[in-house]
């Protein structure tokens, strides 16, 4: 996480380059495997896999905002629902293909994010969280009440849609995009500025950081990713309706995944997503119980492992590899 500055005294560049190449190779390999996966897996696992990929994308976006930017959002569902509605609308009305519709959804997500940012970013800390919650609820109520988008009952997508293996590949592509965005945003100079804003926004602006723009950049990126995920979900269901597409669960789940996996941890979304989807499958027949148990897990992790499963693993590895050796801060 702190690899953005090569430490003095160590010839930084070569090891950094090597790490970047290794990372890119591993990422490419994983992506290749994902693209092949639908052909190899049973229908059930393709279904699960699609869900998992979608959740990881949402969680990555949420982690970018909350973990790296300190912007704890409860408004993921606003952008998810927006993406779903825009994608479905475009597919029905314009004859656009799915990739293009998703792209436009991303733009729509960014537009709303840009529009809302003025108000939302005036709110700091907990108030930002409450503000995003209000935004999500307001959008949902709006869509329920105005008659244009099928009102409370929603709409069906009337054109032919790609089958699940194809959508799985779309989701894999979206995850690749999310990974690229996250790598750029968390491993670059931008991440230094973003974390500075997270730690102390006023102090950051005193050293020249345009905090608003930095937060906005993260917010735009996250909103675009979430909107595209929403679009894919609409394509998967072949329908949109306000209670589902704008449902609170789309705000809750990414948050739960990241807290389970590890807030501000690069692998948090993936680990948390796998855990979350697994629990969800085990309790598939008891959706309420699933959510309630998620709540219990959340509370337990916040209390006993605030850095999630990744943080736990890290602490374990550290203890293994360096028994007794404590890297204390000397005076």
């Amino acid at each position: 996480m702190t690899a953005t500055l090569s430490s003095p005294g160590r010839p930084g560049t070569t090891s950094l380059d090597r790490r970047a190449i290794a990372g890119a190779a591993a990422g490419g390999l994983a992506f290749g495997l994902l693209m092949l996966a639908p052909a190899l897996l049973s229908t059930y696992f393709v279904e699960i896999g699609f869900k998992l990929l979608l959740y990881i994308v949402l969680a990555e976006a949420w982690n970018l905002l909350a973990g790296y930017g300190g912007l704890v959002s409860l408004g993921t569902s606003s952008f998810f629902g927006l993406g779903a509605y825009v994608t479905a609308g475009l597919l029905n009305q314009s004859g656009m293909g799915l990739p293009l519709a998703l792209g436009v959804s991303a733009l729509a997500g960014m537009t709303i994010a840009l529009f809302m940012s003025r108000g939302l970013f005036r709110l700091r800390g907990l108030y930002f969280t409450v503000g995003t919650l209000a935004l999500a609820e307001a959008l949902r109520l709006l869509v329920v009440n105005v008659p244009w988008f099928g009102g409370a009952s929603g709409l069906f997508v009337t054109v032919d849609l790609p089958d699940t293996p194809e959508l799985f590949r779309f989701a894999a592509g979206l995850l690749a995009l999310a990974t690229a965005v996250m790598t750029l945003a968390t491993g670059s100079r931008f991440s230094v500025l973003l974390r500075a804003v997270r730690d102390d926004e006023d102090a950051a602006s005193q050293v020249g950081v345009r905090a608003f723009r930095i937060k906005l950049a993260a917010f735009l990126a996250a909103s675009a990713l979430v909107a595209m995920a929403g679009g894919l979900q609409a394509a998967k269901l072949g329908a949109i309706e306000p209670y589902g597409s704008f449902g609170m669960q789309w705000s809750i789940d990414p948050l739960a995944i990241v807290i389970i996996g590890g807030l501000g941890m690069r692998l948090g979304a993936v680990i948390g997503g796998a855990f979350f989807v697994a629990i969800g499958e085990l309790l598939a027949d008891y959706p309420e119980l699933h959510v309630a148990i998620t709540g219990v897990v959340l509370i337990l992790l916040i209390r006993f492992a605030p850095r999630g499963l990744c943080g736990l693993a890290q602490a374990l590895i550290k203890r293994r590899s360096a028994p007794g050796a404590t890297r204390e801060a000397g005076a």
Binding site: L74, I252, L255, I259, V291, A292, T294, G295, V296, L298, I299, I302, R303
Partner: peptide, 8 residues
């Protein structure tokens, strides 16, 4: 976040 967990 704990009260959020509690809420759900």
């Amino acid at each position: 976040m704990t009260t959020f967990g509690l809420s759900i």
